[in-house]
């Protein structure tokens, strides 16, 4: 398979790297002939006591999740699948789910990658151990690079045990109060593993040792949500099947400091990550998400729909832009990989 990938790369024509196509909607331009990674699949190594799993890029996320679940472990960053995701796509897209604020993002769990670069060279960075500072951290650089730097052929990820206990609570409260509560909780040693505010309801998930979850649940109060309902609520939130995400209005993702006050944007809002991730259904023409995010100290992504010509990702300042172009050239000198998917010039 690697040989076939290499041949395609050495044609030096634009390639659109694609696993299950679950993130086809995501990113700027989709140019080039499709290179399907799904033929290069399979879990290569999984040892629960080492807390590491290594898999080829085309391995379905679902296969990895069930292998881990069998040993009561998980990908703690809870990546959304949005369909038939592959693990290579998970890393390249760099998207994390509800647990992100509590435990970290994809980049926090990537230990190593193998990539084919733009000259068809198979390169290994990082490895399967928890701590490794030999050489620059190219593995983490691949996270969220949207396949513009190389074809990820293999990844090693740190995994964590499934929490022993879990509970979900719900509070009626307006946005301002919810932001206050979420930030307050995050400053205390509480086992909060996910939060979501929408439509004057704040939903909180607690995960951890039985004693910690029970104690926190009785301290925090709120209304207890049944286990089955809670599980499907968090699954639906992660997969964006929650009613908030339906319909055609542009979906903006604003990544801001968790303490940023309620943003003054027209359109329905849903908040996750303790206040740090805010989704807004923007009404076209009336909603300057980019300016709102920037003035709050963050950035905005036009996640789904809307007018794509305004750019999907927040523009970079000139020095960072230059570094991006130079890094792109360093890994992909002929501009083969997903050209324009992240920014027009990388």
């Amino acid at each position: 398979m690697i040989e076939q990938f290499r041949e395609r790369i050495l044609d030096k024509k634009p390639l659109r790297l694609r696993g299950g196509g679950s993130k086809d909607f995501y990113g700027q331009e989709r140019r080039g002939d499709i290179l399907d990674t799904r033929g290069h699949a399979g879990i290569l190594d999984y040892e629960p006591t080492e807390l590491v799993i290594t898999a080829k890029c085309g391995t379905p996320l679902a296969e990895i999740k069930s292998a881990l679940a069998e040993r009561r472990q998980m990908l703690a960053f809870e990546p959304p699948a949005f369909g038939d995701a592959t693990i290579g796509g998970v890393v390249a897209a760099g998207l994390s789910g509800p647990r992100r604020a509590a435990v970290g993002a994809v980049r926090d769990f990537v230990l190593g990658v193998k990539i084919l670069d733009g000259e068809g060279r198979l390169l290994t960075f990082g490895g399967q151990v928890m701590k490794n500072v030999a050489g620059y951290d190219v593995s983490r650089l691949m996270c969220g690079s949207l396949g513009t730097l190389g074809l990820i052929t293999e990844v090693s990820l740190k995994v964590l045990p499934l929490p022993v206990a879990e509970a979900t609570l719900r509070f009626d409260c307006p946005q301002g109060r919810a932001l206050e509560l979420m930030n307050g909780w995050a400053g205390k040693p509480l086992p909060v593993s996910a939060t979501c505010w929408h439509d004057d309801a704040l939903t909180v998930r607690l995960s951890g040792a039985r004693a910690a979850v029970d104690a926190a649940a009785s301290n925090l109060g709120g209304e207890k949500v049944g286990a089955a309902e809670a599980a499907s609520f968090w699954d639906d939130l992660r997969e964006q099947r929650h009613a908030f995400f339906s319909g055609d209005a542009a979906l903006w993702r604003l990544s801001v400091p968790s303490v940023a006050p309620a943003l003054d944007l027209p359109g329905a809002t849903l908040i996750e990550w303790g206040g740090a991730q805010r989704w807004v259904r923007c009404v076209e023409g009336s909603c300057d998400a980019r300016a709102a995010a920037a003035s709050a100290g963050g950035h905005a992504t036009q996640f789904r729909g809307g007018d794509r010509s305004v750019g999907i990702f927040q523009p970079l300042d000139p020095v960072l832009g230059r570094i991006h172009r130079d890094l792109k050239r360093a890994f992909d000198p002929h501009g083969v990989f997903n050209p324009g998917r992240l920014y027009p010039d990388v």
Partner: peptide, 17 residues
């Protein structure tokens, strides 16, 4: 930045170490 992620490549991770 003071949010949980930044646009573009993860240069923060690249800088560290």
């Amino acid at each position: 930045n003071h949010a949980l992620d930044a646009p573009g490549y993860d240069l923060l991770a690249l800088m560290i170490g």
